[in-house]
Every structure is written in structure tokens, then in C-alpha cells.
Amino acid sequence: MSHRVALAGNPNTGKSTLFNLLTGLRQHTGNWPGKTVVRAEGELRTDNHTFQIIDLPGTYSLYSNSADEEVARDYIIFEKPDITLVVVDATSLERNLNLALQVLEMTKNVIVCVNLIDEARRKGITVDKKELSRRLGVPVVLLSAREKIGVIQLMKTMDQMVDGKISTDPYLIPYEEEVEKKIEEMEPRIKEIFGDSMPSRWLALRLLDGDKNLLQALKTYIRDPQSVEIKHEPAQGGCCHGA
């Protein structure tokens, strides 16, 4: 059986480079944001497992700001990948963790891939893998997809995760007391509707935030859980996927 792995991350963090490295495909990469807006898929075989890798559009957040953010969010929420790899840029970790924390609110099965560590090293930036992993509550892998560093470690971690050998305890963003109270009150009501099929804390927050597009998507999902999945069929690219 093949496990589905989604690649999420900010634009221009080398997501597509990692995707190509893992799948052996040649999806076009480029040094600028907005390169990947359609999701691409490819296969990876490790020693023990077969993975279906899905390269999601690079986004700064997963709110319903634009079509590409919705594509990424819908995939994680409705199609529930077995693992979500969040690729973050080691040279600007603080800004990149923003997205990682949003993903951690949505799913437990996350591996944080700190990419571009070679560039970070040149700039005198050191990332403490253990400390970061301890605080985030999920595995952290240091990578340089360009230089093919850290990929073996990543594949091992993926294997362990689908084998159930890793238990995660994702970091939860603390909110103001008043908001937390509301979340607490809403969560059981959300579970009544969706059971355990949706991350209730995240959903409570999105509803409190008044995310209308998500509300629509959820309604569609309730009526027919299959329908959301095919909404974002990859449209056809023309000549060699751009510049």
C-alpha cells in the first residue's frame, strides 16, 4: 500500500527541489516565489514503503486568502495525507515557522524539514535540531535538497512515522484566555458534526475567524465527502511549465 505524503511550505524554500529529489522527477524549479501553483505528484520507494508525494503550492499561510492557499489547505484537511512534510527555510526560520505552526494545528503527522542548511551555515546560522523538535513536538530533519544532504535521514523518519514508531505531540499556539474559552466550548459541538475526521481546535479557530470559503467547503464535504477531493484537478500546463 502506498502512503500519501504532502509537501507544504513557503514559496521559494526549495520544495520543488526536494520533490524532484524524492521522486526522481524533473518538475521545473526556479529561484522565485510562485513557481508551483498546481500540485504535482510523484512516487518514492524507500526500503520498507512506497510513498505518493504531492507537491502543494508554496504559500505563506493556509487561510482562504487566495486560490493557491485554498488548494494547499483543502488537501491537508479533506484528503488527509498520511504524512505532511513542512519545508522551512533555515535562513529565515522565524517567518517560515508561521506556516509550520498552522499545519501543526491541522494534523499530527508532520515532519518539519529545515531546508537550505548549507546556505544558513554560510550565513552563520545554526539550527538546533533537537531543541526545535522537542518544542514543536514533531520530528525535525535538517536538509539541503540542492546538495542532497539529509535525505536519507528524512526517508528513515518517514518510514518510522508510517510504521507508527514515532508519537508526536504537536505544539499548540496559545491564544488569549477568552478565545481559548470559546474554542473549548465549540470543540465538542464540532466533534458532534464531524466526529474525529476533522481537527476540532483548528476548525473552531477558523470558524471564529469567519472563514467563509472554508465554511462553504465544509458544507460541500458534509453533503458528499468525495466531492471536495476532485475539485482541484491539476489543470494542464503548456510548454514546459513556465520560464
Partner: peptide, 23 residues
Amino acid sequence: LRDHIVSSIYQSTQGLTKEAVQY
């Protein structure tokens, strides 16, 4: 609420990077 959510995330990421990253 959006402003509050965003600022909570920023506080979190700031704290995390302070502990895990050295410049």
C-alpha cells in the same frame, strides 16, 4: 479575531526560534 490569531502565531514563532536558532 484575525489580528489576535496572527499576533499569537508571531509570539510563538519568536519564542521557538529564540530557543532553537543561533546567529
